[in-house]
Design a binder for these strands. Structure first.
Lengths: 335, 335
DNA sequence: ATGAAAGCGCTAACAC
DNA sequence: GTGTTAGCGCTTTCAT
C-alpha cells in the first residue's frame, strides 16, 4: 500500500509545539480566555489554521465536568407530523439554550426505548425528553437520583415519579363525540391504534363518557382496536359500513387513522360523519365535513422542553404534571 | 443549606473498590469481554447495580479512539414533511448501523449552518449529512481531509468536492409544465421561494425549458420570487389573479407554496390549474385537480445515509453525484 | 501573563 | 484469569 493513511488529527500539543507556546496557552486562546498576549495569540491562531486543529469537545467535557450541551428526545415515529412538530418545537428550545438534540424513534418498542435511553445516559446527555413506549421506566431511577432531568411527554411514565406534560385526551374526545351526539348520531364507531397506549385509552374513555351521558348503549362492534395505520383504518371502515347495522359517524383517534378513514369514505362516496383527534394541515380542504379535536402541538413540545431546561438549570421543585387543553373545530353538517 | 448535593456519579474505581477487584476487571465485565471468572463477574454486576453505575461513554471513546457512533444531520426545517421524511429515513439507516442521530435545522441561515457543522466536528461525529443552506463549505475541507465523511443532500456543496445526492429538479419541473402546456395553457405563473436556493433555480429553469420548447414567450410578471410561506403564496395568487391578464395555470415549486396556492384558489373558487413540486399525503383528496411532481422522499434520504455509512466504513472511491428521478402524477383536467 | 504537572474516566499494553 | 501502569486530549491547580 502506498500509505493512504489519513493525517492524524492534531491535538493541542501539536498546536503548542508549532506555535512555540505551552498547551495551556493554546487552551486559553482556543477558548477565548482573557490575559493572553496578542502576539502569542496570533501565533496560536496561525498554528490552529495551518494544522486544521479543532478542539476535541469530548476530552474537554470529560476533564472540565461541564455539561455536554446535548439533550435526548425519544419519540415514536419521526415522519408523523405530530412528532415532527414536537421535534421542531423541542429543537427550537434547545437552540435557545445552545444545546443540540439527539433524536431517536422507539417505534413503539419498549425494549428499543430502554436501550436508547440507557445509551443516551452513557453519552451523558444533560436531559431526556421521552414519549414513552414502555410501561416501566424504573430503570431510569438511579440516573434521575443522580440528577438527570427527565420529562415525559404525551404519555405518563411507568414506575417513576417524573415531570409529565400531557394533552387533555379524555376531555377533547368527550367534547368531540358530544358534537356527534348533538347532531343525532347514535351509532358512533371508534377506531383506535391499541388499548395498550395511554392516549388511546383516554380518548376511548372520553368517547364513552359522551355516549353514556346521552344514554347511548355500549356496542362492542363499534369499538375497533388494532388499527395501526391508514390502510388498516380503510379496511376497518369498509368492514363496518358493509355491516347490516353500520355506524353513521366515525371517530378516528389519531391522525393516521383519520387519514385512512377519510380515504376510504371518499373512495366509496360514503356520507358518514367523521371526527378526528389531531388536526392536520389542509383538513379544511377535505372533500367532506370533518370535525377535529385540535391543540397547539408546537406549544406542547415547547412546554415540555422548557420544563426540561428549567430542571437542567437547577430547578428542584416537586415533579409536575401539566395537562394542555384541546378544542373542537367543528366542520360537521348542521342538522 | 441542608446538603441538597446530588450523589456523585460512581466510576469504575468505585465499582472496583466495592466489588474488591481491579478496574480492569470491571471494565471487562461492563464491556462483556471474555475470560472473567463467573464469581468475580457476579460481584462486579452486583456492585454496578448497587451503585447505579453507568459507563461514561465519552471517556471510553476518548481513550479507545473508537468512533462515537453518532452522525449529524443538518436540514432546513424539521416540521416540513419533506425534511421530516428525510430525517426518518436517515434515522432508520442510522439505527441499522447502531448509530444515533444528532439533528439540527439551519433555518436557511448560512452562519448558523457553519456554526452547527463545526460544533458537530468538535463532538467528533462519525459523519455529516447536510442539506446546505450556505454557498461556501470550504471551511469543512480540513475535516474532510482528516477523514470526516460528508454527504450533501438535495443541494450541492459550495467550494468543496463531496458526495452529493440530488433530485432531478429540472427534469421534473419540465415534465410537469409540459403537461400544462399540452392542455393549452400559455400563461403559467411560477411561484418560488428564492432564486438563491439551488432547487428553486433548477425548477424554474425546467419550467422555462418547457415553455421555450412550446414557443411561449417569457413574461416577467408570471415569475414570482420571494414566496417564503403559504401565506405569501396565497397573497401572490390573489395579486396575480386580480391582474387584467391573469395566468390560467400556476406552478408551486415546493410543498409549502403549493399548499398556500391551494388554499387561496379554494377560498376564491378559482378554476385555474395547479401544478406542484413535492407530493403530499391526501393530495388526491384535494377539492380540485392537482398535478404533482413526485419522488420517493424516503428512498432519497436512505440513499444519502447509505452512502454516508459506506464512507464511514471505509469506502474511499471518488466523490459521487447521484440524481434521483421524479415522476409526474397527473390529476389535471383532460381537454 | 505563562507554564508544568496532575488528573477527568476509561481502555490498551503489558505484566503476573 | 487478573492486576498494574500509562495515557487518550483536554482543563484544572498552582507555580512563576
Amino acid at each position: 500500500m502506498s500509505g493512504g493513511g489519513l493525517p492524524r488529527r492534531p491535538t493541542m500539543v501539536d498546536v503548542a509545539r508549532r506555535a512555540g507556546v505551552s498547551v495551556k496557552t493554546v487552551s486559553r486562546v482556543v477558548n477565548g480566555a482573557p490575559n493572553v498576549a496578542p502576539d502569542l495569540a496570533d501565533r496560536v491562531l496561525a498554528a490552529v489554521a495551518d494544522l486544521g486543529f479543532r478542539r476535541n469537545g469530548l476530552a474537554s467535557t470529560l476533564r472540565s465536568g461541564q455539561a455536554t450541551a446535548t439533550i435526548g428526545l425519544i419519540i415514536e415515529e419521526i415522519a408523523n407530523p405530530f412528532y415532527a412538530t414536537i421535534a421542531a418545537a423541542v429543537a427550537e428550545v434547545a437552540r435557545e439554550h445552545d444545546t443540540v438534540l439527539v433524536m431517536a424513534s422507539s417505534e413503539e418498542d419498549p425494549d428499543r426505548e430502554k436501550h436508547l435511553l440507557l445509551d443516551l445516559c452513557s453519552r451523558r446527555v444533560d436531559g431526556l425528553l421521552v414519549v414513552p413506549a414502555g410501561f416501566d421506566h424504573s430503570f431510569l431511577r438511579a440516573e434521575v437520583q443522580m440528577g438527570l432531568p427527565v420529562v415525559f411527554l404525551d404519555r405518563p411514565a411507568g414506575g417513576l415519579l417524573a415531570d409529565t406534560v400531557l394533552l387533555d385526551n379524555r376531555g377533547g374526545a368527550r367534547a368531540g363525540v358530544e358534537r356527534l351526539v348533538e347532531r343525532g348520531h347514535r351509532r358512533i364507531a371508534v377506531l383506535l391504534d391499541s388499548m395498550s397506549v395511554y392516549t388511546m385509552r383516554e380518548r376511548v374513555a372520553g368517547a364513552q363518557e359522551a355516549c353514556a351521558a346521552a344514554g347511548i348503549g355500549y356496542d362492542d362492534v363499534l369499538i375497533r382496536d388494532g388499527v395501526r395505520d391508514p390502510q388498516a383504518a380503510a379496511r376497518t371502515v369498509a368492514e363496518l359500513l358493509d355491516r347490516p347495522d353500520p355506524p353513521t359517524a366515525l371517530f378516528g383517534t389519531n391522525n393516521r387513522i383519520t387519514v385512512g378513514i377519510l380515504g376510504e369514505l371518499w373512495r366509496r362516496g360514503g356520507a358518514e360523519e367523521l371526527l378526528g383527534f389531531d388536526d392536520f394541515e389542509l383538513s379544511h380542504l377535505m372533500p367532506r365535513p370533518l370535525t377535529v379535536v385540535s391543540y397547539d402541538a408546537h406549544a406542547f413540545g415547547r412546554s415540555a422542553a422548557e420544563l426540561l431546561f428549567r430542571r437542567i438549570t437547577g430547578n428542584r421543585s416537586w415533579p409536575s404534571t401539566t395537562v394542555l387543553p384541546t378544542r373542537v373545530i367543528d366542520r360537521g353538517v348542521r342538522t
